[in-house]
């Protein structure tokens, strides 16, 4: 078996005495999607931000493409960010209020020096088309777009540097349900075409089941259980897993059994 793309060992982080993340370890293969599920405060977003090196871990290793990311900083870390990108939950706050569609998408192309300069504007239009947006949006201000459109731009921004891994931190949780399906399909298409891996953070098991090959359920900073998504949902082994499965809304669950 080939080495995993991402391998996290004993990651730990405390905030002011409380252990937010406590010895979390998992592997993620190339082209695979691993979901991190759990309640708010379970540490799933902290894990995501530590993998992105947006939060400094207290302890542990983050092996990505054969190197420990925690050993790098400054320009060495910036160079590696090219291969590991992120989409945030809140599309209002994840773009600079002054950004346009073009400036948001040119940023990664410029900082990572992707393609010769004259081709970058063309690449932006290509990225917009790839995520299902009109290239005519090029000059629009991000904040004129709808939430769903903004999240497509965020996905395009993450794709621009042609990463091996995209961390999706509740990226579809705030999007309207009718648009969510389209975005899930887009992510699956991109994975099939480009072999991208996803670390998919969500609290909604229905969404996780639609996209993730494997799922880790976090509880109070630890991994309670980890395994193929289908078997976790069909037969959760832990109490928190059972509660999460039971609480997922089903179409007329109570109304059927008054």
């Amino acid at each position: 078996m080939t080495a995993p793309l991402l391998s996290v060992h004993d990651l730990a982080k405390s905030f002011g005495g409380t252990r937010a993340v406590d010895k979390v370890s998992f592997d993620l293969a190339a082209g695979e999607t691993l979901a991190l599920a759990g309640l708010s405060g379970s540490g799933k977003s902290t894990v995501a931000r530590m993998v992105m090196r947006l939060i400094e871990p207290d302890a542990g290793r983050i092996d990505f493409m054969g190197e420990d990311l925690t050993r790098h900083s400054g320009s060495a870390l910036r160079a590696r960010r090219r291969h590991i990108q992120m989409v945030f939950q809140d599309t209002n706050s994840s773009f600079n209020p002054r950004a346009t569609v073009a400036s948001a998408l040119l940023d990664p192309l410029n900082t990572f020096d992707i393609l010769p300069k004259p081709q970058r504007a063309h690449e932006v239009r290509h990225l917009l088309e790839r995520v299902g947006l009109s290239p005519g949006l090029f000059d629009r201000s991000i904040h004129e777009l709808s939430g769903g459109q903004r999240q497509r731009v965020a996905i395009a921004r993450a794709l621009a540097s042609r990463p091996a891994l995209i961390v999706l931190d509740e990226a579809l949780s705030a999007v309207d349900a009718s648009i969510r399906i389209d975005l899930l399909e887009l992510l699956l298409d991109l994975q099939r075409e480009q072999g991208i891996s996803y670390l998919f953070i969500a609290h909604d098991l229905g969404m996780i089941r639609a996209i993730a090959h494997r799922t880790a359920i976090l509880d109070a900073g630890r991994i309670a259980e980890i395994g193929p998504t289908q078997s976790i949902i069909a037969a959760p082994q832990t109490q928190i897993g059972q509660q999460l499965v039971a609480a997922a809304p089903r179409l007329f669950h109570v109304a059927d059994q008054p």
Binding site: A177, S178, L188, I211
Partner: peptide, 17 residues
Amino acid sequence: LVASHLALEGPTLLETQ
């Protein structure tokens, strides 16, 4: 809207794709 419900039963997007 009904179709966009992501159920815990039945075929998933991942499988169909």
